[in-house]
């Protein structure tokens, strides 16, 4: 069995009276595709936000690659090697696709004001490397032909792909995807599935929130189910699918 990459211990988060997360613990291993599912409002996105430092948890802690993850410093989390996409796509709309991915390189590059103005050899080399890597990534997610278009002019599916490319640009160890297939048609979803499998082959661990049950069950090695902020099940897809508690959560909730 592979080493543990991420360990969440008893994470809690509430908003006023709403307990979005209670005592959520899970472990994600190096190289796996780990699914996080649950009915609407179960707390999946909240878990992502705690994980990436956007929300300060009200309890519990996170261990990433054996070290504690400091809360409330999203840019440090990115630097440690956790990248994410957003449920309601958050691209830099008035920047080109290319520039979006180049921004993703920020954490791994160093040029400051002086370098930018003087264009010394190190800065120009770094800038060229950023550009090259961004081009590679646009090819990788298959939207190289849209490189010079503004992000907000891309189609929905392409925007999702661009967000993944931008996340990959940070050289993550763990890639967290929040409903990447939402709003995609069958062909686009099949393409996305191939893309995620490719990412895993390249050695990146994937944490996937998704409502598309077929996609999750076909793609994930293990799945955790959240309901009303609590983890009710964690196992391989075949077992999770048959778990009475999971069936109850989905059928008992408003979303069948």
């Amino acid at each position: 069995m592979n080493a543990v990459l991420l360990e969440a211990r008893a994470i809690a988060k509430h908003f006023g009276g709403v307990k979005a997360l209670t005592d959520v613990s899970l472990t994600i291993r190096q190289g796996e595709i780990y699914g996080l599912i649950g009915p609407n409002g179960a707390g999946k996105t909240t878990f992502f936000n705690v994980l990436t430092g956007l929300y300060h948890p009200d309890g519990g802690d996170l261990l990433f690659a054996g070290e504690k993850l400091e809360a409330s410093a999203p840019h440090k989390v990115a630097k440690r090697g956790i990248a994410r996409t957003f449920q309601n796509i958050r691209l830099f709309g008035n920047m080109t696709a290319m520039e979006n991915v180049m921004v993703g390189r920020h954490a791994r590059t160093h040029a400051g004001v002086l370098g930018a103005v003087m264009h010394d050899r190190r800065t120009t080399a770094e800038e060229a490397a950023i550009r090259r890597r961004a081009e590679e990534l646009l090819h990788y997610v298959n939207i190289a032909d849209r490189a010079d278009d503004l992000a907000r002019h891309l189609s929905y599916g392409d925007q999702r792909r661009l967000e993944i490319a931008r996340a990959l640009a940070t050289d993550p160890k763990l890639l967290a995807l929040d409903e990447p297939a939402a709003g995609m048609n069958g062909t686009e979803t099949a393409g996305l599935r191939e893309l995620i499998e490719g990412i895993r082959r390249d050695g990146i661990t994937v944490l996937l929130i998704e409502h598309d049950v077929k996609l999750v069950m076909g793609l994930c090695d293990r799945v955790a189910v959240l309901d009303y902020g609590q983890k009710i099940c964690e196992d391989v897809p075949a077992v999770v699918q048959k778990d009475p508690k999971v069936i109850e959560a989905y059928l008992g909730g408003s979303v069948a």
Binding site: L54, H106, A107, R108, T123
Partner: peptide
């Protein structure tokens, strides 16, 4: 430059900029 892109990224979406590793 890297700095200029970071500025515009913050303008466009501060939360996404943070998630990209920018110390906003």
């Amino acid at each position: 430059s890297r700095i200029g892109r970071a500025w515009v990224a913050i303008r466009e979406d501060e939360i996404a900029a943070k998630a990209c590793g920018i110390n906003t």
